[in-house]
Design a protein around this nucleic acid. Structure first.
Lengths: 213, 213
DNA sequence: CCCATTCGTTACACTTGGTGTAACAGTACA
DNA sequence: TGTACTGTTACACCAAGTGTAACGAATGGG
């Protein structure tokens, strides 16, 4: 018999999972990823090392356990867009909406190590990040191929998806940089809007004229 | 005193390096990446495990030690192109020229495991592959930014670079697929040319109209 | 030709990420 | 209450990768 989703067992399991992830991230932020061993995490969470690996296949997964909704949002921008809105426009809107992460970015800045401090400069975490992006690209490419009715093996959907995800990433990074540099929210939002327009203007008109001049 | 580049010491070192790489790749192709331990490689090459790691920082590097010229070629397509040729056109030419790898692809097919069989399906090797691509993208983005005179932090060069590298990869993969499916060289070349034109036509005209219809 | 230096290599001990297994303990359910 | 389930545990184990001191061949100067 399948267990009820709200059962006590499930509850405890989720608590354990959350406890492990929180403990691990607190340690990572305090001292850095490589300077914390899984044995330590297990000890601090009062759990066996094996239990840690039961919940998270690799040590890197402990850092990325939150970022699972990015995929859903990007996919929704393709599949759930209103009639008459092109994919490019839908993605532009998605990128514009990134300003809603500004508050979180600011909060992250006060930590001794922000999420991105943790990731950037650490090879295994950067690789994991690429993995996540690659996965999103693939999901998106599949959705595009389905909508376009592309024949199997057609490289176009993949290329479009890779471009859109690349643009999204670059714009997000740029936004984070602006937040780091400081300034009022309105200023940052205005600059970000300009960035998005520039990028999607280029993508809309084609790359043939780049660089200009 | 710096040792002369053609010294006996240097020669022996290079021989050792080559021996290790060849031994490792022969074992990998025969039995698969995960099924061969570094200890085995060292034993087969009659060398200590430490020496293997002295030459190749990670086990994955043993597989990728050849692919270092891809970066140079992509970069040259941007920096060494004739006057009056756009970057997009230069990259189209680069992609068209990929047909020169067809012979190598055919040769690879007869092995029990081709290079790509080895990489695809193995998480750590796929990650390493992404790492290589990421590096190429970054180098390209820097060159583009320099040529465009972009201000630091401008996301455009990065996005263009990511798109170009993405297109190159997708077209290469498509070409490999065609080779796997068989057929005469002329047929494959013709189909590849059509692929390249379709992709660069889209990139030139802009993504706004994708998918068509 | 000999001597001192350099440096690639080695043996060895060690750390750490990750797995396999069998047993234990609390939950679900009849 | 009894039984099947399942998350957790202890423990033994494997493989990747590092640090170190020492060995020995290549090198270059006197």
């Amino acid at each position: 018999m399948p267990m009820s989703a709200g059962g006590l067992r499930e509850l405890k399991k989720n608590r354990t999972r959350q406890l492990i992830a929180d403990t691990a991230n607190a340690l990572f932020r305090a001292r850095g990823f490589d300077e914390v061993t899984v044995d330590e995490i297990a000890a601090a969470a009062q759990v066996s090392k094996k239990t840690v690996f039961n919940h998270f296949p690799t040590k890197e997964d402990l850092v990325f356990y939150r970022a699972e909704n990015r995929e859903a949002m990007s996919l929704a921008a393709v599949t759930d867009r209103p009639a008459g809105v092109s994919i490019l426009d839908s993605f532009r809107a998605l990128c514009l909406a990134q300003t809603r992460f500004v508050a979180g970015m600011r909060r992250d800045l006060v930590h001794p190590r922000s999420f991105f401090d943790l990731v950037s400069g650490n090879p295994s975490l950067e690789r994991k990040m690429h993995e996540v992006n690659e996965r999103i690209t693939r999901v998106l490419a599949d959705a595009l191929a389905a909508e376009a009715g592309a024949e199997p093996g057609d490289p176009l959907p993949r290329i479009v998806a890779s471009t859109l995800v690349g643009a999204q990433r670059a714009l997000y990074r740029r936004l984070r940089q602006r937040v780091r540099e400081g300034g009022p929210d309105e200023e940052i939002e205005r600059a970000h809007r300009a960035d998005v327009e520039r990028v999607f203007d280029l993508l809309g008109k084609g790359l043939g004229g780049y660089p200009p001049g």
